[in-house]
Amino acid sequence: MDRDVVETVSLRWLRRLVIAGFLAITVFPFYYMLVLSVRPIERLLLDPGALVVGFGELTVATYAEVLKATDDGGQGFLTFIRNSGLVAVAATVLTLLVAIPGAYAVARLRFFGRRQVDFLFLAVYLFPSIVIAIPLFVVFTRAGLRGSLFGLVLVYISQTLPVSVYMLKNYFETIPVSLEESAAIDGAGRLGIIRRVSLPLAMPSIMAVALYDFMIAWNEFLFALLFLVDKPNRWTVSLGLSLLADGVEVPKTVLMAGSVVLTLPIVILFFASERLLTEGLTSGAEKG
């Protein structure tokens, strides 16, 4: 047997093995999360190695406890979900309102400072967020915005803006200019062109950016921690889960139910739009 055959055959098997391995390490933690969230804590302590839930021990009491309001003896996650949802939706909508015109301008219009704008966004994107956090912490403390969800929305807009503009810009550039020119000849003004021609064509990309923004805002932790920690009724799901996990009072299985609640919307959104997202994120990567 020559080297080529040996390599080809062994690599074929190795490849299957590696794929199985990757599936195991990526999916297992989520499976484990789900399993723990429906087991009573006593069962977990007795047998921490179990991977399947026995029929008799299956429980959804963990979910009931985590979702119920604190007044009813629960952990109040319903309130957290509302906060997170509110913040994430507001941040997404506002980011798009700001980013779409910005991205269009950078992609299409020649104006003074256009090149610098590109560079500015990259720099902002890569700058440590903890550096920005300090003065924002100071300003928000002074302005009384600490503890308000509005302040958080403002920060999230700034955090998602650079990537949003970048992704949208890349997409706008792929739309043939001739389409816009023919609309201009038909008498459409600049805004009319954007609204009637560019926006409908860019819809898939806009959806991808919206999903990306939503995910970032829903998952964010540092700024929520800095701004909301003293106000339990304003906590986001991420913040609530992390703060409750620090203590010992709440059983881990109940918190696992909390993590499922935190993760599930994102996973559903992601699987529903996987293709859209991955293409959106890497469009333009081939150039580099």
């Binding site: 794929i19 990757f22 599936l23 990526t26 999916v27 933690p29 989520f30 484990y32 999360m33 995910m215 829903w218 998952n219 932790f221 799901v237 991420s238 913040l239 889960l241 992390s242 996990a245 918190l255 696992m256 993590s259 935190l262 993760t263 994102i266 996973v267 992601f270 699987f271 996987e274 991955t278």
Partner: peptide, 20 residues
């Protein structure tokens, strides 16, 4: 498989650190 491989990256950091 490709979508599953992206899970660690898209899942909320608080949830995955807690599971770990």
């Amino acid at each position: 498989v490709r979508a599953s491989m992206l899970l660690p990256y898209v899942a909320p950091v608080v949830a995955v650190t807690f599971v770990w």
